[in-house]
Simulated assay, not measured.
Amino acid sequence: MQVYHKLKDFTKAFPRVAVALGMFDGVHIGHQSIIRRAVELAHSIDGTSAVFTFSNHPIAVLSPEHVPLQIGTPELKEQQAAELGVDLFVSIPFTRDFAQRTPEEFLALLRDDFAPSYVVTGPNYTFGQRGRGTQRQLLREGKDYGFQAEICLAILRDGRPVSSTRIRALIVDGNLAEANEFLGHPFRVIERVIHGDRRGRTIGFPTANLPIRAGTAMLPNGAYAVRVRVDGVWHGGMANIGDNPTFAGCTRRIEVNIAAFDGDIYDHELIVDFLAKLRDEQMFASVDQLVRQLKKDQAHAENIWRTQLR
């Protein structure tokens, strides 16, 4: 997959484009249906599948006090698009200047920079100044700009559409199983390892410390069974989200223990998939008590992740 963070004329390098449009926050099962349809249409015309999205939420520019927490990071969105078979990924910053484009100017941008044969969106997609452009306009006027529009149906669960808003609430409330079902994949964190206090090594449970990025949705504090990808290889593990109340002076972060792993991975990028919650965060009266609980957690986690490594 080729990735661009600026608009340019893609028409010569990427012919016969089927482009999926949307924010795709979390790349949940509804988003996946849109992207897969664009990939399918591109294959049908021996063309290029593309995603055109924004690296920041438009609300962060238009009404910063109301910007929602994001489900993951731009890097996560990019990776998941690649996993869905996208050829071209274009993610640009949403700016006030961009917000001033009329719906017709946005359609002209698509024509001039992508020359798409197909444009695929979800039922709630809007575009152009104040979101005045709708899927009806895409269907009605697409042919005037050289493309055929397809609007994918919403994916329903419990009679309601799956949405980033629903998933965001599930994550923050700690309903990991349902969040993972709606996402269509485990809740995932991609971050680089930062320096920690190195206490884990002294008690037999070394951890890789990951920051919790501001503005992203995060699970409640507690211990979780996870799988961890290090340098392309998946491992089982445990993760603790919190400020480690047994030890003073810790800030909220993710501490990941990778089973049977002892490499130096400082500043390496880790991919951590959250599979199930093991327990709430606890304060222990002693280090020995903490170690006993960690051994129980490890046995519990092993029963969970041993069938989910890939």
Rank of each mutant, 00 (worst) to 15 (best):
C250A: 13
A50M: 07
P123E: 07
N303M: 15
G215R: 06
E255G: 13
Q129A: 11
A50Q: 08
F89L: 11
L69E: 11
E141T: 06
V162G: 03
T53C: 07
D197A: 14
L76T: 09
T202G: 06
T48P: 03
R136A: 13
L294W: 00
A13P: 01
E104H: 11
Q135V: 15
P245Q: 07
A38C: 10
G204S: 13
N56K: 08
T207E: 01
G232I: 14
T307E: 10
G122D: 00
T307V: 07
V193K: 02
A115H: 11
R101Q: 09
A99S: 15
L210D: 06
T207L: 00
Q2P: 03
L76D: 05
L270F: 04
G159Q: 06
D264Q: 14
R201V: 09
S117R: 09
A276M: 00
Q80V: 13
R96Q: 12
L294C: 00
V230W: 10
V226M: 02
F98N: 01
N175P: 06
G222C: 13
D113P: 01
V119C: 05
N180E: 08
L183H: 09
I45H: 07
E40T: 03
S117A: 08
E281L: 04
L294K: 01
D288L: 10
F205R: 05
P93N: 12
G237C: 03
L21N: 02
V67D: 04
A259D: 13
G142T: 06
D158P: 01
S91T: 10
T11R: 10
E83C: 11
R37K: 14
I194Y: 01
F247D: 06
R229D: 07
L275K: 02
Q70A: 15
N209Y: 12
A82D: 11
G22S: 05
V19F: 05
V162T: 06
F14K: 04
V189C: 08
L309N: 03
S55Y: 00
F106A: 07
I271G: 03
R292I: 09
P186G: 01
E83Y: 14
L62G: 00
